[in-house]
Design a binder for these strands. Structure first.
Lengths: 136, 136
DNA sequence: TTTTCTGCAAAGCTTTTGCATAGCT
DNA sequence: AGCTATGCAAAAGCTTTGCAGAAAA
């Protein structure tokens, strides 16, 4: 509860029930798009207008409390970013399972490659698509 | 010219002027979305209805002649896939420059990671976002 | 009190679909 | 001839915006 309020206050964002409700949904069910967030809130009898959902998401993303991810063909999905370290994703194309991972060597190699092409890296996204152990 | 016809024939797709025109645009200007393809064709006095552009893109993607890419916030863009080996992308957040690269070690590490999580990898996408040498 | 947030309804964009005609093989 | 492709217009989705009233600091 207070966790979400803390995140907002740390970024000097006005605290409202809508914002904490959206953060709570995203914290419990990761990797949701705006429409899914809306649906889950409706299920919980916490209806929030779509306009507000989009506005809140945009603000949270701007302040780096949540981050936008692209998993292949679908729409962008969001996950909590603050209080979490960077990670990459393994996505099961069969059942949709998402597993997070980090790998130091890959991060290093990425910097080397960027360097060799004259790029400085600000961020990156690495998604591995395949089948999880259950779907194989 | 004939290159595009060959690609289509190899996949048993009916050859039409619209399809070869769209392939030609994508071959010359990489990483375009549907609207950009439409605009470029209009510039060349080769108007193709949007419905057709979307239908052709979908068919070309389904047959793996082109592939869809997500570069961060924007819409999906497309690039020629057939006759090109897999590669990853460095994207300049300032000027939009896209540089392609491949790295054997990263590919190997990806397989190792996936293995350790019980995943088999079908495909992957690795995008490095930053600033190119000109924009730094 | 002042600023920001919110809902509603409308508008904007991108993408998809139905249907009749045109084009490829 | 038979099957697929195409254009047009309409529909469907998702996202954004204007505005007036509500809530937070």
């Amino acid at each position: 509860m207070n966790k979400y309020i803390d995140w907002l206050e740390q970024k000097n964002i006005r605290v409202t029930a809508n914002k904490t409700a959206i953060l709570e949904v995203l914290d419990k069910h990761k990797h949701l798009d705006a429409v899914q967030i809306s649906s889950i809130l409706d299920t919980q009898n916490t209806h929030i207008s779509q306009a507000t959902i989009y506005r809140v998401i945009a603000e949270l993303e701007k302040h780096e409390i949540i981050s936008k991810l692209n998993f292949g063909n679908e729409h962008s999905v969001y996950e909590i970013q603050c209080a979490e370290s960077h990670h990459d994703h393994l996505i099961c194309l069969e059942c949709g399972l998402v597993v997070e991972f980090t790998n130091e060597k890959i991060e290093e190699l990425q910097l080397e490659i960027a360097n060799s092409k004259g790029f400085s890296v600000i961020t990156h996204s690495l998604n591995l698509y395949g089948k999880c152990s259950k779907c194989n």
